[in-house]
Nucleic acid binder design. Structure first.
Length: 335
DNA sequence: TTAATTTGACCTGC
DNA sequence: GCAGGTCAAATTAA
């Protein structure tokens, strides 16, 4: 697989992004139960959300730097690192004619399908028409729906490789596939996800699930499908089964912001939050919001400085993601 | 009952 | 012959 320097994040940047998200994940995982017994659960939740939003924002800012892959499909997944593979050379391309030829049966030994004939070796630097890979602790959260069709023990690795194809392959002819290979046994474990072929199914991505309070709840309850079990296989299996609950929030065009804002207004939890505490006087409420505004400004500055320090660009359209800003502002209004 | 996953067999390239 | 990718029947889950 050819990796061009300009087409992927450095290992350091990738590590920073992963570490940011992983740390907050651990923080939330360990402190979430405390919400039930904490004397001031809102304050605790506030702190956790601040950490989570800051980490996600920094990670997104770093990961979406302009030199990252500009592939449309690449933009559709949570980029940890994008390693664009070489496109197949014409000689290797799976042309229709080649497919027809591949479908011809060997006398006395009929083939099951033409797919095998199209196969190309990943390690041989040729793999279907195009492929790209990413490293991520959350391999199933890319917003698309996948169906697992195989699993294989790969030589020289301690973990099996799982094969997925787009759920809509049969009824929409979408040829997108992906392979998930666990790379280590850390907590959370790191996976290499290799995508092949772009989606042609125009699948409604799970971002739309934000309209669905149940889906939002699922996301909140289990943000990345990771479980505490020490059994690797169990972790992996359960993560796969969480796939439909997964959601990732890609930065939408600005025109969508109003829609998203309205969607959040439909979220029951936020309705509750927007009520002013009954015991608060007007002046204390104003003072409270003034303090929070200052806090907000300080946080924003911190995020900017941190992201810039990690190599993000101020004019990066993803910098300080408007989605996250919107979510953050909604949450700030709760307290 | 339907849809998704599992898993052994099959197929191809090297 | 081996390794990796895919198929499809059997199994499991919803």
């Amino acid at each position: 697989m050819a990796v061009t320097e300009s087409a992927c994040l450095s290992y350091e940047q990738e590590a920073v992004a992963v570490r940011e998200v992983a740390q907050v994940y651990e923080l939330i995982k360990t402190q979430q139960p405390l919400l039930l017994v904490h004397q001031q659960p809102q304050q605790l939740a506030h702190g956790l959300l601040n950490h989570a939003l800051r980490a996600l924002n920094v990670a997104l800012s770093v990961m979406n730097q302009p030199h990252a892959s500009s592939s449309a499909a690449a933009a559709a997944v949570p980029v940890m690192s994008m390693i664009k593979a070489e496109a197949a050379t014409p000689a290797n391309s799976s042309s229709p004619a080649a497919d027809v030829a591949a479908d011809n049966h060997v006398v006395g030994k009929p083939r099951r399908s033409s797919s095998a004939a199209k196969r190309r070796r990943i390690n041989g630097e040729e793999y279907k028409s195009s492929s790209w890979s990413q490293f991520t602790p959350v391999p199933h959260e890319d917003g698309f729906q996948w169906r697992k069709y195989g699993e294989k023990k790969i030589q020289g690795t301690h973990f099996t490789r799982s094969y997925f194809r787009c759920t809509y392959r049969d009824n929409r002819g979408c040829q997108a596939t992906k392979q998930i290979q666990q790379k280590d046994n850390n907590d959370p474990p790191m996976f290499q996800v290799t995508y092949s072929n772009e989606h042609t199914c125009t699948t409604t991505r799970l971002i739309n699930n934000i309209n669905n309070p149940a889906a939002l709840h699922n996301l909140t309850a289990n943000p990345n499908g990771h479980h505490d079990s020490d059994d690797d296989d169990t972790i992996f299996t359960k993560m796969i089964k969480q796939e439909e609950q997964a959601a990732w929030l890609p930065p939408p065009p600005p025109a969508d912001l109003a829609t998203i804002s309205n969607n959040f207004d439909e979220t029951p939890g936020l309705h509750v939050c927007q009520e002013v505490p009954p015991s608060s006087s007007n002046s204390s409420v104003i003072s409270h919001y003034a303090d929070e505004f200052d806090h907000h400004q300080m946080l924003e500055t911190t995020v900017m400085e941190e992201a810039l320090g990690l190599g993000a660009y101020l004019d990066d359209p993803y910098f300080y993601d408007p989605n996250l800003l919107l979510i953050y502002e909604s949450l700030m209004n709760c307290y």
